[in-house]
């Protein structure tokens, strides 16, 4: 075996391999960290150090003033999977009393044919969030807003738990055999629409998503149109607005009719 010392500048294997590797690294660093960034006028770089920092990915913290506050109220409810999932008999009892005033639109058993939402069996977190949003003004409705305005947080929890406790009643349009529209089972990936069923049941249920089976088609349609038009904006992170804006009028009709026919 060669007795030459390997780690010596006189060994050509050492000097050439280390030299070439270092040269490639330095050259690519100069090109990637200095030259290419400086070629891009959009970056508005002030000099070589700025170019290096920009290309190396040093975080450029935005100035606090740059954030634009929304011109409307947004929902302040934080929904968690465990929220209002524990049954509390006292709370349900109080809710039953408080719900007397809701019965004229939502029905004495939480179900009505008035095209207002059927609340019987609805997840408590959902009902609670909507009441809260009506109260804070994140969601506005001429009928509901005044009702919610004077409710305390405990009142809203009680009513929500009461309606969650009531058994679901199928609508008069019940037809479980109706084939689900494509948008419900597969969504529309190219338009960034996830399947409705991936949050609202059948495939998966996500915290804060209402149960839609048996809801009035008129109501579902009106809400989707409101989301699409931006007149309803209390969905967290614009989840529903982004979806509804991408849906066609026909899909909105299909979805509304489909969910109305479900148990």
């Amino acid at each position: 075996m060669s007795e030459d010392e390997l780690y010596s500048p006189r060994n050509p294997w050492f000097s050439i391999s280390v030299g070439v590797t270092a040269a490639i690294a330095v050259l690519s660093a100069i090109v990637g960290l200095i030259w290419l960034p400086l070629l891009q006028p959009d970056l508005k770089l002030s000099g070589i150090w700025d170019a290096i920092c920009s290309a190396a990915g040093v975080p450029n913290l935005p100035r606090p003033a740059a954030a634009v506050p929304p011109t409307f109220k947004t929902s302040n409810v934080v929904v968690t999977p465990e929220m209002l999932t524990r049954q509390d008999q006292v709370s349900i009892g109080r809710g039953a009393t408080l719900a007397q005033r809701c019965a004229i639109c939502h029905g004495p058993q939480g179900v009505s044919d008035a095209n207002s939402p059927n609340l019987a069996g609805q997840y408590a977190a959902v009902t609670y969030k909507e009441l809260n949003d009506f109260k804070t003004g994140a969601r506005v409705n001429v009928v509901m807003s005044p009702f919610a305005a004077n409710m305390t947080d405990q009142d809203m929890r009680d009513v929500a738990l009461y309606y969650a406790y009531l058994p679901r009643v199928p609508s008069s349009q019940l037809n479980p055999g109706l084939p689900p529209p494509a948008i419900v089972v597969t969504g529309a990936p190219l338009r960034n629409i996830p399947p409705c069923g991936s949050c609202h049941g059948e495939i998966d249920i996500k915290a804060g998503s209402p149960w839609l089976g048996g809801q009035s088609a008129v109501y579902i349609k009106a809400q989707l149109q409101a989301f699409a038009a931006g007149t309803r904006r209390n969905d967290i992170s614009e989840q529903m607005r982004n979806i509804a804006r991408q849906m066609t009028a026909e899909e909105i009709d299909q979805v509304a009719r489909y969910y109305e026919a479900q148990p």
Binding site: T21, A25, A29, G32, I52, A55
Partner: peptide
């Protein structure tokens, strides 16, 4: 052995958390 490893960032070309300069360097390698 020498150059197969420090090049993996080309899998992250679309990731925002790595600077463009390092993406370029790893692209070269």
């Amino acid at each position: 052995v020498v150059v197969a490893m420090p090049i993996g960032v080309h899998h992250l070309f679309a990731d925002p958390q790595v600077g463009a300069g390092f993406k370029f360097m790893q692209s070269v390698f």
